[in-house]
Amino acid sequence: NQASVVANQLIPINTALALVMMRSEVVTPVGIPAEDIPRLVSMQVNRAVPLGTTLMPDMVKGYA
């Protein structure tokens, strides 16, 4: 199964993503693939992302 990017902490709106904020986990539904974690670093989220939430492409500015 494909691992997705999951929030490792609460990520406030407009926060630039850092490695420590993300982990990979096999979840349903599938979100952003875990292999894209390096690409996500320094991109901003466009909403608050609670701990344990799967990151979806529409949550990250400039990802989709």
Rank of each mutant, 00 (worst) to 15 (best):
V26Y: 11
G62Y: 08
M43H: 09
P33D: 06
P29Y: 03
Q9K: 12
I11D: 01
V60P: 00
V26R: 09
A3T: 11
V45S: 05
S42L: 08
E25Q: 13
V45F: 00
L51T: 11
M21Y: 07
V41Q: 05
N14Y: 09
P57W: 10
A3F: 11
P50R: 08
P57H: 07
P50G: 13
G62H: 08
N1K: 12
R47V: 13
A34H: 07
M21L: 05
N8E: 08
G52F: 04
A34R: 06
P29I: 05
V41P: 01
M22W: 01
V6Q: 03
P12D: 08
N8Q: 08
A34Y: 09
S24V: 11
P12I: 05
G31K: 02
V6F: 01
V26F: 08
T28G: 07
A64Q: 15
L17T: 00
I37K: 06
S4C: 04
R39L: 09
N1M: 13
A34W: 07
E25I: 09
N14Q: 08
V41R: 05
S24Y: 07
A34S: 13
V20N: 14
V6K: 03
V60D: 00
L40V: 06
Q9S: 09
V27A: 07
I13S: 12
D58F: 14
T54G: 02
A16T: 14
N14S: 08
V41E: 06
A16Q: 12
G31W: 03
M56T: 13
V5G: 01
D36Q: 14
L17M: 06
D58K: 09
Q2R: 12
L40N: 02
A3V: 09
M22H: 01
A7N: 01
Q44A: 09
N46E: 07
L55A: 02
A18V: 10
I37R: 06
V60A: 01
R47Q: 11
V49E: 02
A18T: 15
V60F: 04
R47I: 14
V5D: 01
Q44V: 12
V27L: 05
R39F: 13
I37W: 03
N14L: 07
M43K: 09
R39T: 15
M22P: 00
V60K: 02
V6A: 02
N1R: 08
Y63G: 03
L19P: 09
N46G: 09
T28L: 15
V27C: 05
Q44F: 09
G31F: 03
L40F: 01
T15W: 05
P38T: 10
D36E: 14
S4Y: 03
T15F: 06
P38H: 11
V30F: 12
L51Q: 15
A18Y: 06
